[in-house]
Design a protein around this nucleic acid. Structure first.
Length: 1034
RNA sequence: GGGUGAUUAGCUCAGUUGGUAGAGCGCUUCCUUUACACGGAAGAUGUCGGGAGUUCGAGCCUCUCAUCACCCA
């Protein structure tokens, strides 16, 4: 049966994958012949995700490692799975609901909405798992995990799993150890999704903004001498002021100011430190007065040097406010609109004033409840409020004014053709001081809206307590990060780690297993002071609560979640509302008893909290599962952009829970870019879809391209031309088999390596030994590009270019023994190509493997070779074949350069051929004559005039072409060679003549230089002689 | 502003203890020679970003300047 002309990837790949999967080829432990495990955890893609080039790249790396180890007989597991991806999935489902005219999330309610999410997941989730099969990924699909498996809301149709148990167990354990706490902190709030997000999910983008300058009048009309000096201390401005000038890019937050801060060394403001000034906005009757304080934060050289402090809406201000005990007034609701709840502004302002005057005690909860937004701004969007605030302040005359630069200038003249006589008489002399400037603004990476720093109650992991072991694991080398630069970045981040905010105001996710109830004070229930109960189930929680409230009170579980929905204002208000809404008492409650109402926190955990448990949560933990033998795993392969998001968190969580690092090696790679090095984006239209590449060139070509660009730490630029090139490589391999087919070489299967007698066969067997060592060394060092390059060079450059060509005379010849040996060697070598290439190009290699009559195992399970170069290389055969190749190369090159017709057979002459050269010729003259198109060889004492000269080690060859060649051209050719040689000779002689080199360089380097010099000098002599001969003619 | 990395052939990139530069693609010329035109043969192209230093010797080590990229503020 003749082979097809090329490999039909589109037809073969699905068929081969199906065969592997049916055979259970990728199941955990498949093909294991030893006890050592090798485990890679797939970074779980979002359940909403699709395969992109980044996945294609890192899947290739993981699959190469996994297939390699599996063939070596390790007990292998590549663990797949999906991440529930809180925000992304919730968003996707909400969009879906909108598109299909279904009720909105809020209309459905939590339970119904979660049903919809699960429905969505069942119908559309996880398409990426099908796409990954097209890449040839050898994951154990039967073990595919999901970070929400086993959740209370999961329908029975879902694949069973217990990831949820792991998440809750870890939370409770960490909570009980004091590693998790709840607190009111400034967090990044996404007003679109109405949830806190991590600072890593915030993109800071430079945008055009404005800096407004306003006057904050001093209380009671006080004045002071304001003096400005230049660098030399000369007074440049001296005036009496009754205000302090403040610069801000966010005027709407002035309403929440708690103080004005200046630097303690700032002489300009020294006279007024400790005094009060007025926030120049809001009803005139209730203007708030705030203190002028000192703090290290203000930069004396920036703006006016005075900073307004709004602790609840700015991260820097928050720190200042904490240091100075300044109240932090929360101005906005969850949508980023100005608050509309709470008491009338006049009442709130009065309380705030009492606080500022030091007449009123305050605590966090009380401040949080206060709404400092005057009635006229309440309910406005934050950006609308900004406009109104600016307009109102300016109208009242509290904007800092500067001379109008347009006054005295003229209107542009292009429009009306008038020249120079069009003064702007309509311009005011002074205008408000507003600087247009670039400001860094935070945006949600998913919502793309401006993130608002918000003071809210959130759950935190006290990372400071668990970061130590994660740092030590890398510092002590138990976990290695590749490339090494990643380690520095890792240290830097972990050493400056912030508390990790793990609560999200979403519904899709692991609901936090904490219930709030009133505390008992003075024998009564106090709903103002919360008591927390944390346990993995409601039943356990009830036990905890009962124990706390007994014997005086009984316990009832309420639905805090519903309260939250009913409140449009701050969620804190809702939380403190427990007990107020006591209507939620269940039907079974007994009359006459007093119940403590407890309610579960409605928030869910950050998705990264659950994916932090991926290295063991996927293996059945906390159950005593057999799969736990794969923990700790071996290698983590992921993009360096999620070093913090995920890698660091897995490290911390594994150390905290399991007391071990989750893997010994972290392989980080860069973002995959387009061929020009630009990020791919839909808007730019430069997105390359890996599936398109597979359709066009086959998965193997894409994979080879990925392997080849996987230089450690390298920039990843994917190029279609390159992928095409590797498709061609696959075809080359295919044709090597059709070569064997053509020569009707038997292929019974699993050929053994023959004890070769033919030099040719000895040589290629040795080359195979070398490449096996190179490939393994490269794989062990995670230098996948080196492995790919070595295999490419071997398969194409050695096997196809030379070995197959050399074998032709034998295969066509009459020496049956030599032919039989060569048949077997050829089959063996080609088999080795398949085995060694299989981790990179699994499909085409498996297809070719299956062409053999019978096989002990499929290629995916073939035994990875262990032979070494020292075992297989025959030094004499090596030297001889390289000499033959050299001679052929040189003859071909000389012929081409002097324009000998490609088809013409020419006679060859030789002088001074030594014994080794003679025997190399004798052994291989058939090959040489065939490939270099040589008619005959004659020994001569002197070359005739007009002869192309080919210097070789052990003899000088020549092609007598007196009448055919252009003498001048041949001289030019030789002289050019001489020039190159001259450079080398100069370097070598220079070094060897330098006594310091001989004295200080290592012996072998000196010896090598000497040997090299001898060779070159010999060559030089031959060339000189040749040139001289030619010049005689000329 | 801080950190990390980069700058090597026309393009995209390798270059592992410092020993004198490579690959793929592209380009030029020739070749339908029975495995392969997704092929074969031959060929051209580099003051390794600039400068200084250490060394017998620097693409590689040190310093400095320039440009760029990414991450964090």
């Amino acid at each position: 049966m003749a082979m097809e002309k090329t490999f039909n990837a589109a037809e073969a790949e699905p068929r081969i994958y199906e065969m592997w999967e049916q055979a259970g080829a990728f199941k955990a432990g498949a093909n294991a012949t030893r006890d050592e495990t090798f485990c890679i955890m797939l970074p779980p893609p979002n359940v909403t995700g699709h395969l992109h080039v980044g996945h294609a790249f890192n899947h290739t790396i993981m699959d190469m490692l996994t297939r390699w180890k599996r063939m070596q007989g390790y007990d292998t597991l590549w663990q797949p799975g999906l991440d529930h991806a809180g925000i992304a999935t919730q968003l996707m489902v909400e969009k879906d609901l909108a598109e299909t005219q279904q009720p909105k999330r809020t209309e459905l309610g939590r339970e119904k909405f979660l049903e919809k999410v699960w429905e969505w997941k069942a119908a559309k989730g996880g398409t990426i798992e099908q796409q990954a099969r097209r890449l040839g990924d050898s994951m154990d699909w039967s073990r595919s995990a999901f970070t929400m498996s086993g959740a209370e809301s999961a329908p029975t149709t879902e694949k069973p799993g217990n990831f949820h148990d792991a998440v809750l167990k870890v939370f409770v354990e960490m909570y009980n150890k004091g590693l998790i706490y709840r607190g009111k902190r400034l967090v990044n709030w996404d007003p679109h999704f109405e949830t806190a997000i991590s600072d890593l999910e915030v993109e800071n983008i430079e945008v055009d903004g404005h800096m407004w300058h306003f006057k904050y009048p001093l209380a009671g009309g006080e004045t002071y001498e304001y003096v400005e000096k230049d660098e030399d201390g000369n007074v440049t401005l001296r005036e009496t002021r009754d205000y302090i000038s403040i610069a801000t890019t966010r005027p709407e937050t002035m309403l929440g100011d708690g103080a004005v801060a200046v630097h303690k060394d700032d002489e300009r403001y020294a006279p007024i430190v400790g005094k009060l000034c007025e926030i120049p906005v809001g009803p005139k009757e209730q203007r708030r007065l705030i203190p002028i304080i000192t703090d290290p934060y203000p930069d004396m050289n920036f703006g006016s040097g005075a900073v307004k402090i709004t602790g609840a809406h700015d991260f820097n201000d928050y720190e200042v406010a904490k240091r100075g005990g300044i109240p932090m007034y929360n101005l906005m609701d969850t949508k980023g609109a100005m608050r509309a709840d709470g008491k009338p502004y006049a009442e709130e302002a009065a309380i705030a004033q009492a606080i500022a005057n030091g007449e009123q005690e305050f605590d966090e909860a009380m401040i949080a409840a206060m709404n400092m937004v005057p009635e006229e701004y309440r309910g406005l969007d934050r950006f609308e409020a900004r406009k109104r605030v600016v307009a109102d302040i300016t109208a009242e005359g509290n904007a800092v004014m500067v001379p109008n630069p347009l006054v005295g200038s003229t209107h542009p003249t292009e429009d009306d053709g008038r020249v120079g006589d069009n003064p702007r008489e309509d311009e005011p002399a002074m205008i408000p001081f507003v600087e247009a400037k670039k400001i860094m603004q935070p945006f949600g990476d998913r919502s793309k809206v401006v993130i608002e720093p918000m003071l809210t109650d959130q759950w935190f992991v006290d990372t400071a307590q668990i970061v130590g072991p994660a740092l030590d694991a890398v510092k002590e080398g138990r976990t290695k990060i590749m490339p090494e630069s990643g380690e520095k970045v890792y240290y830097h981040w972990l050493e400056n780690i912030e508390p990790w905010c793990i609560s999200r105001q979403l519904w899709w996710g692991h609901q936090i297993p904490v219930w709030f109830g009133p505390s008992i004070s003075n024998g009564d229930l106090d709903y103002q002071s919360q008591k927390q109960f944390c346990a993995t189930t409601e039943a356990e929680t009830l036990e905890l609560a009962k124990a706390y409230y007994a014997p005086d009170f009984d316990v009832e579980v309420s639905e805090l979640g519903e309260f939250i929905q009913l409140q449009s204002g701050q969620r804190e208000v809702a939380v403190t509302g427990i007990g107020v809404h006591s209507t939620a008492l269940g039907e079974n409650s007994e009359a006459g008893k007093t119940y403590a109402l407890i309610a579960r926190d409605p928030d869910v955990l950050d998705t990264w909290f659950s994916s932090g448990l991926w290295p063991f949560g996927t293996l059945g933990w906390p159950a005593d599962d057999e799969a736990m033998k794969y923990f700790p795993g071996d290698v983590l392969v992921t993009g360096q952009d999620i070093l913090f998001f995920w890698v660091a968190r897995m490290m911390m969580m594994s150390e905290a829970i399991m007391g071990q690092e989750p893997f010994h090696t972290v392989y980080l790679h860069q973002l995959v870019r387009d061929a020009k090095g630009e990020k791919m984006s839909k808007t730019k239209g430069n997105v390359i879809d890996p599936l398109d590449m597979i359709d066009a060139y086959g998965a193997d070509a894409l994979r080879f391209s990925n392997a080849q660009m996987a230089a450690l730490g390298g920039v990843l630029k994917i190029s279609e031309d390159r992928i095409k090139g590797y498709r061609n490589f696959g075809t080359k391999l295919w044709n090597a088999f059709s070569f064997a087919d053509h020569y009707q070489i038997a292929y019974p299967g699993d050929p053994a390596r023959p004890a070769a007698t033919q030099t040719l066969n000895k040589w290629i067997i040795g080359e195979t030994g070398k490449v096996r060592e190179t490939v393994d060394a490269a794989m062990e060092a995670y230098r996948f590009n080196d492995a790919a390059d070595a295999l490419y060079a071997f398969t194409w450059g050695k096997v196809c270019d030379w070995y197959l060509e050399f074998s032709k005379p034998i295969l066509q010849g009459d020496d049956a023994a030599a032919k039989a040996e060569t048949d077997q060697t050829l089959r063996w070598v080609l088999d080795q190509c398949l085995i060694l290439l299989h981790p990179i190009m699994p499909f085409i290699t498996e297809e070719l493997w299956q062409q053999a009559g019978s096989r002990a195992k499929m290629l995916a399970h073939a035994d990875w070779p262990t032979y070494t170069a020292s075992e297989l290389v025959d030094a004499d055969a090596d030297r001889e074949m390289n000499w033959v190749i050299d001679l052929i190369d040189n003859v071909r090159s000389a012929r081409a350069q002097v324009h000998v017709p490609a088809g013409a057979k020419v006679p060859l002459l030789v002088t001074g051929l030594d014994a080794k050269g003679q025997s190399a010729w004798d052994n291989n003259h058939v090959l040489i004559q065939r490939l270099a198109r040589i008619e005959s060889l004659s020994h001569v004492d002197d070359f005739p005039k007009g002869c192309v000269t080919i210097p070789m080690d052990g003899g000088t060859f020549g092609i007598p072409l007196a009448d055919l060649i252009d003498v001048g051209e041949e001289i030019a050719r030789l002289e050019k060679t001489m020039q190159k040689l001259g450079k080398e000779l100069g370097g070598l002689r220079g070094r060897l003549n330098n006594p310091k080199f001989v004295a200080s360089a290592p012996d072998e380097v000196v010896a090598e230089a000497k040997a090299n010099l001898a060779l070159r000098e010999n060559e030089e002599a031959q060339l000189k002689a040749a040139i001289a001969r030619l010049q005689e003619i000329g």
